[in-house]
Computed example of a mutant assay.
Amino acid sequence: MPANLYALGAIALWITLAALGVSLRHIPPFLLTGIALLMGSLLALPAVLQDRKAWSVPAKTLALGVYGLFGFHFLLFIALRHAPPVEANLVNYLWPLFMVVLAPLFLAGLKLRAVHVAAALLGFAGAAIAILSASSNATGAVGWSWGFLPALASAFIWASYSLLTQRVKPFPTAAIGLFGLVSGLLSLLCHWALEPQAVLSARDWLLLAVMGWGPLGTAFFLWDKALKLGDARQIGILSYITPLGSTALLMLVSGRPLSWSIGLAAVMIIGAAVLGTRVK
Rank of each mutant, 00 (worst) to 15 (best):
V57F: 06
P58E: 11
K60Y: 14
K60E: 03
L62F: 14
L62C: 08
L62W: 15
A63I: 07
L64H: 06
L64G: 07
L64T: 04
G65D: 01
Y67I: 14
G71V: 06
G71H: 15
H73A: 04
H73C: 02
L75E: 09
L75W: 12
L75V: 00
A79M: 12
P84W: 00
E87G: 05
E87V: 09
A88G: 02
L90I: 11
L90Q: 14
Y93M: 05
Y93W: 11
P96A: 05
L97I: 04
F98D: 01
L102F: 13
P104Q: 01
L105H: 08
F106S: 11
L107D: 12
L110F: 12
A114L: 07
V115T: 11
V115H: 12
A119P: 09
A119D: 10
A119I: 07
A120G: 08
A125Y: 07
G126D: 06
G126L: 12
G126V: 03
A128W: 14
I131Y: 08
I131G: 07
A134I: 05
S136E: 09
G140K: 11
G140I: 13
V142R: 11
G143A: 10
G143P: 07
F148W: 03
F148G: 00
A151V: 03
L152Q: 01
F156E: 14
F156N: 11
F156Q: 11
A159Y: 10
L163N: 09
T165W: 01
R167T: 09
V168W: 07
V168P: 02
P170K: 09
P170N: 08
F171M: 08
P172T: 11
A174W: 02
G177L: 15
L178Y: 13
G180P: 03
L181S: 09
L181C: 10
S183F: 02
S183T: 08
G184E: 03
L186I: 03
S187E: 06
L188N: 09
L189M: 02
